[in-house]
Write a protein that binds this DNA or RNA. Structure first.
Lengths: 64, 64
DNA sequence: ACATAATGTAAAATATGCTTGACATTTTGA
DNA sequence: TCAAAATGTCAAGCATATTTTACATTATGT
């Protein structure tokens, strides 16, 4: 399922998918896939995304 | 680096590595490796571990 | 001391995260 | 309206998470 929380947090920082990708050191397609939710990123990548977006793991990645 | 938080939470539930592995549906070696910290689990596995151990992602997997 | 459970570790095989490159579509702003 | 930026998506390949099997070591209880 889609992860709209990342998309929202990214919008709050005025960053494009490409900006975020470069900031965390992965490809743009990887960020796109994470937001689209069709796969299962590593915890290391999740933490890197959280740090760039000033959010916690629970805020961005906990599932309801 | 080692993840002693999982080990502690597991001890608090009186579960062996094997118990936790079966509860989350992975091999015992995977749990051992996660606790040993020599690799980088998927967010889905982290969430499964959190649910079994009644903890949050931030409590068990946020790095300091 | 002994048996058993729990843990640490290793090698080979498989599954999948992630990259690179490329192209199509949508959105944004001048 | 038009060009550029942002996003969606696909396929092939590489990197690495995870499994399976197996064995050694360390704890635990009787």
């Amino acid at each position: 399922m889609k992860n709209l929380k990342i998309k929202a947090a990214r919008a709050g920082k005025d960053m494009s998918q490409d900006d975020l990708a470069k900031a965390v050191g992965v490809s743009r397609q990887t960020i796109n896939a994470v937001e689209k939710g069709d796969y299962n990123p590593s915890i290391k990548l999740c933490i890197a995304i959280c740090k760039v977006l000033d959010a916690s793991l629970d805020e961005l990645f906990w599932e309801d």
